[in-house]
Design a protein around this nucleic acid. Structure first.
Lengths: 192, 192
DNA sequence: TAAAAACGAATGATCATTCATTCGCAGCAC
DNA sequence: GTGCTGCGAATGAATGATCATTCGTTTTTA
């Protein structure tokens, strides 16, 4: 959120993020967004072409922030295991410290938006991210099991995503020690 | 679906299952269900009190079928590892052979229905299933890591769920060998 | 022919989006 | 300072679409 040009624009983004995180896409009608943002319904359309565009813009904003944070203190050049542990722990801590953003991202990933995004990630021409790079590298050097990249992603990040969700649903109480052991367990799933 | 009392009732269930699996809950309006079932909209309400009840009934029907199949050839009394491999492989094969049912279940689990169901599973008073039993047992005997049950579930079944999804989205090509290696990798995540 | 089952148009709710109107203010003349 | 003018920003009631559900009517069944 924070530094966005324009008061209104920022308020709309924040309101949408909160409503989607708390009630899902279908619990975030534009009328409710407008009310929470302290803005008239029509005003939203001065800043965003449609609800779709609004959602996508928020997603890309959050994704950028996530990767920016991820790269702080990233152990470039270290063994794959260290790099993986850094990513995994960062992911979980990020979700715990930014529950609204985490829940928005969860909603996004479980929607048609998310499927399209995932397809793009594996088949698209866009440049691959550090995580992709890490696994491609670790498979090549025989550090992790010889499995398709999609499977390696599922084995490691699906559990972490679910563990975070269980945390903010109050199913599981996470602390630093438990987080570390979870991330290590995910590494055990893929390491040779 | 199959043996359901009444032609119409069965047709309605099948139509709903298909539409939800293919287009999600919001792509399954009652009018469309009625049309696909070859039935008038009002008729649905002779068989089901509401859309909610219809969805829940389908879910419980599928859950029962799943556990029924799961118990065929279940290696009761064998080590935890064998029991887990049986469950994991059955899960993936079941999803591949019943893609409509698998996708319906996926939609269900990613919805408010699913959250309530999960809460019930961990905190409810209903009797625990074989899977719950397996992990409780394996933790007690020190066969798997000392982690909360919710975490053990996430570490093992979240990846499998995702792997199945990637299969019917054509992101990953699964065969028996790959399935076995995936399930074993999940076991590696939790075993001591 | 009477009861049961099925029908499907009508109802009322909820949305995203639009657009005719109003608001607030910057610049200007006196 | 005061009054006027023009314009982009903001408004929110209205629109049209989409749903779940209802109910008066028709058809089927026994």
């Amino acid at each position: 959120m924070e530094i966005e040009k324009g008061d209104k624009r920022c308020a709309i983004i924040r309101a949408t993020l909160e409503l989607v995180a708390e009630h899902g896409f279908h619990g975030a009608p534009m009328a409710a967004v407008a009310e929470r943002a302290g803005v008239a319904a029509g005003t939203i359309y001065r800043y965003f072409e449609s609800k779709d565009v609004l959602i996508q813009e928020i997603y890309h904003f959050l994704e950028d922030r996530f990767f920016q944070g991820l790269m702080i203190g990233y152990p470039e050049g270290q063994p794959a295991r260290e790099r993986f542990l850094h990513i995994g722990k960062f992911l979980v801590h990020y979700c715990m410290e930014n529950p609204l953003q985490a829940r928005f991202l969860e909603q996004f990933h479980n929607s048609p938006y998310g499927i399209a995004h995932r397809r793009d990630k594996f088949y698209g021409t866009q440049d691959k991210d550090v995580i992709y790079e890490l696994f491609a590298d670790a498979v090549a050097t025989g550090t992790v099991k010889q499995l398709p990249l999609t499977v390696l992603f599922s084995l490691t990040f699906s559990p972490l995503r679910d563990i975070c969700r269980d945390h903010y649903l109050n199913f599981t109480m996470l602390d630093d020690d438990l987080i570390a052991r979870c991330v290590e367990a995910c590494w055990d799933a893929v390491r040779k």
